[in-house]
Computed example of a mutant assay.
Amino acid sequence: MSQISNALEKRDSGPAAVVEQYRESLALVMPSHLQQRVGAWIRNTQGLLRRDEKLMKAAQNDVGQFIAVLMDAGRLGLEPGTEHYYLVPRWNNKKKHTEVTGVRGYQGEIELMYRAGAVSSVIVEVVRTRDQFQFRPGRDERPVHDIDWDLDDRGDLRLVYAYAVMKDGATSKVVVLNRQHIAQARAKSDSAGKDWSPWNTDEEAMWLKTGAHRLTKWVPTSAEYMREQIRAQAVVESEQAPEPRIAPPLPVPAPAPGTVDDYDDGPIDAEIVD
Rank of each mutant, 00 (worst) to 15 (best):
I4P: 00
V119T: 06
I230N: 14
V176E: 01
P249M: 10
S191L: 08
Y263M: 14
W207C: 06
A183F: 05
I123E: 11
S121K: 08
A16M: 03
Q240S: 06
R104S: 03
R142D: 08
P80K: 05
H33A: 12
S121I: 00
Q35F: 00
Q60A: 09
D72R: 13
R231G: 05
T221L: 04
L177I: 11
V252P: 00
L55I: 05
S121W: 00
I67K: 09
Q60W: 09
S222D: 15
V176S: 02
E109A: 10
D265W: 12
A223H: 06
S197H: 01
L55A: 03
R50V: 08
Y114S: 02
A162Q: 03
P242W: 11
L70A: 03
S172V: 12
Q3I: 05
W41P: 02
I123F: 07
D131A: 08
Y163P: 03
L78W: 14
N200D: 06
P89E: 05
R186H: 11
S197A: 05
S25N: 11
I268V: 08
R142A: 10
D52P: 01
H97Y: 13
G117F: 04
G74P: 02
H33L: 12
T129Y: 15
A162D: 09
R115A: 09
Y22P: 00
H33G: 04
Q240V: 02
E79L: 10
D190V: 06
D153A: 09
A58L: 02
R231W: 12
A234F: 04
Q134P: 01
A205G: 07
A68I: 03
R158P: 01
W196H: 15
K209N: 14
S13K: 15
Q132E: 15
E228I: 00
N6M: 13
R136Q: 14
A270T: 09
I4S: 06
Y85S: 01
N44V: 13
A183R: 15
E228W: 08
D261H: 15
V176Y: 05
R179F: 03
P267R: 15
S189V: 04
G117E: 06
A241Q: 15
F66V: 02
E109K: 03
V126D: 00
I268D: 13
K173P: 02
V126P: 00
A205E: 12
G258Y: 13
V19L: 11
K188T: 08
L87Q: 05
A232V: 07
R43Y: 03
I182G: 01
D140A: 07
F135T: 04
V273H: 15
M113V: 10
E224P: 00
P89T: 07
P89Q: 04
A17R: 04
W207L: 02
A254E: 11
A27C: 12
H84C: 12
E109C: 07
L8W: 13
P15I: 04
R214I: 00
D152H: 13
T98K: 14
V88H: 00
L49I: 11
R139W: 12
Q107L: 14
P80Y: 08
A7M: 13
P137E: 12
G105M: 14
T216P: 02
F133C: 09
D265E: 12
E20M: 12
V29M: 05
P257G: 08
Q132H: 14
Q36A: 15
Q240T: 11
V124E: 07
V252A: 02
A16E: 07
T101E: 10
P248W: 14
P31N: 07
D274V: 15
A234D: 12
I123G: 00
G117H: 09
L78A: 06
Y263P: 05
N200T: 01
R51E: 13
